[in-house]
Design a protein around this nucleic acid. Sequence first.
DNA 1: TTAGTTTATGCGACTAAGTCGCATTTGTCA
DNA 2: TGACAAATGCGACTTAGTCGCATAAACTAA
Lengths: 143, 143
Amino acid sequence: MNRTTSRYSCQKELQNADLRVTEARLGVLAVLKQTEKPLAAQDVLTYLKRHSIRADKATVFRIINSFAEKGIVVPVQFNEGRLRFETTSKGDHHHFVCDNCGYIEDISDCSITPLADDIQKKKGVIIRRHSLEFFGICTGCQK
Amino acid sequence: MNRTTSRYSCQKELQNADLRVTEARLGVLAVLKQTEKPLAAQDVLTYLKRHSIRADKATVFRIINSFAEKGIVVPVQFNEGRLRFETTSKGDHHHFVCDNCGYIEDISDCSITPLADDIQKKKGVIIRRHSLEFFGICTGCQK
DNA sequence: TTAGTTTATGCGACTAAGTCGCATTTGTCA
DNA sequence: TGACAAATGCGACTTAGTCGCATAAACTAA
């Protein structure tokens, strides 16, 4: 576990977000921070169980929702019938999802910001967030 | 009901897609074609009931899935915990969704195709579809 | 037009994601 | 340390979506 997922740094992050520090919240934050791909609530729950952190399903959902409200995580969806979440600390990026094997790859070299600015000007709306996902076949599944 | 949602044109479209023509399918296709914004299965079901077209929930899901397989509709997701669908006849476009009132606006003057091409080349993946949604506050909710 | 085959549908049961209320426990701060 | 507010566990619940199976309807060819 590196600096950004240490217990201490997670603790500070929760406090900065005005959230009480609990075992469950530390665990949820840690797994979301140390995992590459966006996680569904069920994945988080499994991780917590494996690390002997007691937390109910409802609690995990409540924690994730509170993180989302505070802007610590954002929802991501891959047409799976459930939401995934990832930390905002990863910065603005997008995803490629393989339709065949579910492989997820981050796409970071693709800026949408100018497009968003353009839309804001033309339509008069305020854009706070966007989601861009590409679906197709990964290199492995092409063989 | 105009030319593109007439019973006859829907009938032809189903036949072209190699799908049997049934009342339920005609109804689902018609409502998806004549509605501006993407619809959830429940919305379709409500429309069918209102038009006295008898169709079970499972049937509607099966119909929508078969349409998606044939490329007649594509899934759209707004972080709602359910999928919406819209006809592909609307062409490549994206959406702005108001976080406050749920208002949906089509964004058509925003081309992602060059970006997708770029990613395909760089990463070696094949991109078949993408989804781009903007979330924020619509003009009405800013007042 | 009809008989026969294939496919779609209705029904009901089921799963999985996510929510909610309420009693209890835990974190925080004075 | 004690009081209060907030978080949690539990269980019931809702909603999206799926599945199997018997029946009904659509297509095909004669």
